[in-house]
Design a protein around this nucleic acid. Structure first.
Length: 269
DNA sequence: TTCCAGGCGTATC
DNA sequence: GATACGCATGGA
């Protein structure tokens, strides 16, 4: 890890990292681009302003302590994405995907926020997902905990304009805040069992469960299959994800998702 | 106007 | 277990 303190900032030197590709690729919905090189956003209650100048990053008003305790883990900086990309590149399509956007990293997010966010994401588009989550956070002045949301119901959530998803948010808040379903417990389960457990929540199917496991619980073998990945599988991997992604299918999926969304013409069907 | 968006619940077979 | 359909909302 190559970083240093400079006045109140942290200067980070990091390869295989691009803010546009990582913060605006549909895995997180609370980062905002505030200038050509700068994003601001939150992980839990921690605010960050981060600037990119090629391989040099400035984390504004950040201490070495919060760098070590929060942001290294959040941005998955202890993982060598160069090695991962090299491994993935044994496959031709993945090789192109990694070359197209080599700065994608997996964000290690909060499981509860992921659960809510990806419940909201179903049959929805990214700008509107961001809008709903933004209204949710404005009301509570932060991303509300399951406990906070357990006081809401379908009617009181009307202001979100989240449509049929409101009742799913209510059920998720109830099951998580009551402890009927616990992330600590789920993290000890096998992939299949963990997924099954999450799917007990209304509005959580295979895709949303995989999103929670991958983005919120760092289960890198989980790869969410949405309409785009479905098209990739049909076109290139009829027998499933290639062998070279084993154990890291979720990270490979990140490259593929971004690649296919921006290169729709390579699809034959 | 119609279609579609990082899917899922329900009904039906 | 597979398949068809409706679903809130809003932008294109």
């Amino acid at each position: 890890m190559n970083f240093e303190r400079y006045n109140n900032d942290i200067i980070l030197y990091q390869e295989d990292f691009d803010l546009d590709e990582t913060l605006d690729c549909g895995q997180a919905f609370r980062w905002t681009k505030i200038s050509e090189k700068t994003y601001c956003g939150y992980f839990l209650g921690n605010y960050l302003e981060i600037v990119q100048e090629s391989d040099r990053f400035i984390l504004r008003n950040t201490s070495e302590e919060s760098m070590r305790n929060i942001w290294i883990k959040y941005f998955d900086l202890d993982t060598d994405y160069g090695i991962l990309k090299q491994r993935f590149s044994q496959d031709k399509t993945l090789e192109q995907a990694c070359r197209f956007a080599g700065g994608i990293r997996l964000l290690r997010q909060d499981p509860w926020e992921c659960l809510c966010s990806f419940i909201i994401s179903q049959n929805n588009n990214i700008p509107r997902i961001k809008g709903i989550i933004s209204r949710l956070c404005s009301k509570y002045d932060q991303f509300p905990t399951a406990q906070m949301l357990s006081n809401e119901n379908e009617e009181t959530l009307q202001y979100l304009r989240s449509g049929f998803r409101a009742k799913y948010i209510v059920d998720a808040a109830a099951k998580i805040s009551s402890g009927i379903i616990g992330f600590d417990h789920i993290s000890e389960l096998s992939y299949d069992e963990a997924k099954k457990k999450l799917m007990l929540i209304k509005g959580v199917g295979p895709k949303v469960a995989d999103c929670v496991l991958l983005y919120g619980m760092y289960r890198t073998e989980a790869y969410p299959v949405d309409v785009w990945i479905k098209r990739v599988l049909e076109n290139f991997y009829p027998d499933g994800m290639p062998e070279c992604t084993k154990g890291y299918e979720g990270i490979a999926q990140q490259y593929l998702f971004h690649y296919i969304r921006n290169n729709r013409d390579i699809l034959l069907k």
